[in-house]
Design a protein around this nucleic acid. Structure first.
Lengths: 326, 326
DNA sequence: TTGTAGGCGTTATCAC
DNA sequence: GTGATAACGCCTACAA
């Protein structure tokens, strides 16, 4: 059995209250007494029980993170950013993965919210109403998504798409296709908005190829579809699709970027390792995750502050899958 | 403020004890009473407070996972397996990433162990002594590693290396190099053992290229080193190294597998998307993660049971980076 | 600066 | 089957 504050108190000849104060960092304890207590605690292996502490203070020192898929590099990088910042600020981290199933999210929130002081919720596709049902339950920062009245950290995908389109346009491309991802995706809508606005601006029309699974299998399908159309450039929803497409295109003997230029979105680690390396819109996932923790701390410290919606910049990274139009 | 058992009790005209029993699934409560309580609880939004429950029962319903790097696909796939199985068995999951720094692990364990009923610890490189110092602290299952007297789930990398070497040998390769990873790595030692035993068996000698960072940058270095040696095949520590090498080799105009065959280890998602796709030893990370949760549950249910060291099979997957020797 | 005492929300132990 | 009550380990007025 682990030592309790009583054990330490007895061993030091003080009361449990003094032991508690010695550990709460702010109660006033005579310096020699504190040192004696800390030493004795160390010797006995005593640390305050988080559950007991939580019961009375109402705070657990933990935060929660809900993501659709930890095995997806986009989200594992995000989670890493959250984890690192949480660790740096001495917060414990609870993680729940919902296996890309929106309907599991409410249960995940319910199961997690009593154990944490705040929640970071990456819900790319769930309906606003589902989120709203948890308003006020637990301090929450949305990640990779915005919602009126909520705290959030998102990335400027609309501008990312603008950069992509402007770049293709300046390379002379006029017949450009877009392969979209899941239709309900919030960030997908931002991409679309950026694409629409910019295509109007530039006076180019974009051929919509439809909605694809945001993974390499979806990418294979994209490759076959795009070859059936008369386009010189492709913008893909994300790197996974682009990598899948690239692989399929190679096996069909298509030269990238000679026959077709490709730009995608995310800039995951393997984007730079493909042949040729992907030109892609860098999305600062790690930084977004860390920022979400910072915002959450603000929110937890001041629950009545007006919501902050932080938007992080994206940046086109030009590599090997784009070239001037033939 | 959330409703408490007292609120529900009052609303139902019963005692808190009965409410508690209605939620503990096994206490005897008259069926109509239970239904009334559950309905009222639902209405009030009552759920037992996990902290209070933990304080008295001593169990939290949570488990912990410690991994070196969540952003590394090897570990994020592992974590995903853990998460999914934990969710399936209704266990909460605490995650701590140690940023590949062994010295952070003890602190991570200490901070996590009071909040969980059991721990899954992926420590590829830390010294046995560091682990032993936590013996008996909290039910623990080691992951991707074995240690005498401990519960563990690992994968048979020695056999994986045997399969790789036998395959290269049967393709006619005799001048074979090995690019290793971190030297203290437990799984690295298993790879080495498999390589040694099999090379002796087959009567081929293996050229040791040394120790490299297990990421794509390490792979670039491997590429340059291997080109300075007279070999026809390369075995790489993991896919990240192989992918980095492949990329570098392509830019140096080396034909894979024409000039050089490559086999690596792990079979991460992007292994099949490179050009050519990687021949690699499949390591069942997801399954290993899930198995660790199962084992941990056994251990938690019966802390005095003799330790189980589960070893999962690996399997060579032949794709495009290997060919008969020129 | 330190001690005393009450209570956080739940479960376990008894009676009834 | 149900109710009263004492823990669980800690924090926090309040008193000294």
């Amino acid at each position: 059995m682990a030592a309790t504050s009583r054990d330490v108190a007895r061993a030091c000849g003080v009361s449990v209250a003094t032991v508690s104060r010695a550990f709460s960092e702010k109660g006033s304890v005579a310096e020699p007494t504190r040192r004696r207590i800390l030493a004795e605690a160390e010797r006995l292996g005593y640390l305050p029980d988080p559950a007991a502490r939580r019961l009375i203070t109402g705070r657990s020192g933990n935060i929660g993170l809900i993501v659709p898929d930890l095995a997806n590099p986009f989200f594992s990088d995000t989670a890493k950013g959250v984890e690192r910042e949480a660790r740096a600020t001495r917060l414990g981290l609870f993680i729940s993965d919902t296996d890309e199933q929106d309907r599991l999210e409410p249960d995940a929130v319910r199961r997690i919210c009593r154990q944490v002081d705040g929640l970071i919720w990456a819900s790319p596709r769930n309906a606003d109403e589902v989120l709203l049902q948890f308003a006020g339950t637990v301090p929450t920062v949305l990640l990779h998504r915005q919602l009126e009245g909520w705290w959030s950290v998102s990335t400027d995908l609309a501008d990312g798409m603008r950069q992509a389109l402007v770049n293709l346009h300046s390379l002379g491309h006029r017949r450009i296709a877009y392969a979209g991802g899941p239709e309900q995706s919030w960030s997908g809508q931002q991409r679309l908005r950026g694409l629409m606005e910019t295509s109007e601006e530039l006076g180019v029309e974009i051929m919509m190829l439809g909605s694809f699974a945001p993974n390499s299998d979806g990418g294979s399908m994209v490759a076959d579809v795009v070859l059936s159309r008369d386009v010189s450039a492709l913008i893909a929803y994300n790197d996974a699709i682009a990598l899948g497409a690239l692989s399929r295109l190679a096996s069909r003997g298509v030269d990238v970027p000679g026959d077709l230029s490709i730009i995608s979105c995310d800039d995951i680690a393997y984007a730079k390792l493909s042949a040729p390396p992907l030109t892609t819109v860098h999305v600062p996932r790690h930084e977004a995750g860390a920022a979400a923790v910072d915002l959450l701390q603000e929110l937890m410290a001041n629950p009545d502050a007006p919501p902050v919606a932080k938007v992080m910049a994206t940046q086109l990274v030009i590599r090997g899958t784009t070239a001037p139009v033939a």
